[in-house]
Structure formats: C-alpha cells, structure tokens
Amino acid sequence: MTEAESPRTPDGRPFRDQPRWRRDFPIDVAEDAYVARRDFAKYVVLVSGAFATGQVSMLLRSALARRAPAPPRLRIASVVDVPVGGAIAFRYPADGDPCLLIRRREGEFLAYGSECTHLMCAVLPEVAKGRLRCPCHQGYFDLSTGRPIAGPPRRALPTVTLDVRDGEIYATGVRLESQ
C-alpha cells in the first residue's frame, strides 16, 4: 500500500508509523465518520417522521372530537345534598372523568374536573380560601374560574356547566379554558 493510498489515521501520523494492530485492521477515519454521520441523519429523519405523525394524530383526534355528540344532561345531586362551603364528587361525562361539585355560597354552585392539569392528581377544594389545591406538587386553581394561580399547572381545570332546576343540579356539558 503506497502512502497516497493509505487511509487517514486518527492521530495524523503516517500509516507506516501506526501500531501494528491498526496496520492489520486499517480504518479510514474520514470514511468512518462519513458513514456514521450519514446513518445518524437517517435516524434524525426517522424521529422527524415520528414528530410529524404525532402532529397528524392530534389533528385527526381533534377532528373526531368535533364530530362526537354533545355530553348528556346528567343529574348530579339535589341542592340539599350539598352543604354551603362543601363539595361532592361525581363523574361526568364518562365514568373515567372525576369532577367536583362545589357550593360556594347559598345558590352558587361550581363544578370542575378534579384531575390536576399538571400530572392528574386529584385536586381538593379549599372553599374558604377561594381555591382548589393539588397536594402532589402544590398547584392551586382559582375557585371562581378554575384557572391556575400558583404551582406547576399551566392549564385551567375543565369547567362543568350546570343547570339548577327545581332543587336538582344537572351537569349539561364540559367547557375547556379557550372555549
């Protein structure tokens, strides 16, 4: 093998000065780096495809959610079942959606999804302090609006719209922050 044909070496010294093992198994560093970077580029594009798939799946789920029927009207409790300053738990619109019905004052009812928007811990009502507290990471939500006021949560709790009629309280829908 002539000097011109010999592969480039990691330390830049001539091929003939390389250790025996390297002369027995010569590796062209530039060629090796080229192949490695080319393969890395393939994986980058693969990850790019995964990100695009995630975006498209969100788009499809959003389109499907728009076609879904409106949540049913559901009786939660009677007015007398909820003491002033107290709360009761219920599930709406599905069994996997825990919610809280809170009676802040006489005649004022509020209902929110009770899963913290940070990591889905159950939030606890602190009616006297006008807030809901997530004990896992000390997240706080405003009792009047469900919006986050302190701690890690960045999104508001889902608001359950209510209809109080003839002494009965009904859930009529779920509203997210931007709607």
Partner: peptide
C-alpha cells in the same frame, strides 16, 4: 400539545402542516 390539551385546537392544523413541511425538507 399544550394548547390542544387546554382546549385550543385552532393551532392543530397549521402546526401539522408546518411539521409535515419540515418532514418533507428533511
């Protein structure tokens, strides 16, 4: 994802288009 989970799905379509354009370039 953050906007979508918060109920704002107005950004989902333009973001998906932008992501697909990036994928095409890649």
């Amino acid at each position: 994802t953050n906007a979508w989970l918060g109920g704002d799905d107005s950004v989902v379509l333009p973001a998906a288009v932008a992501s697909l354009v990036c994928l095409g370039l890649n």
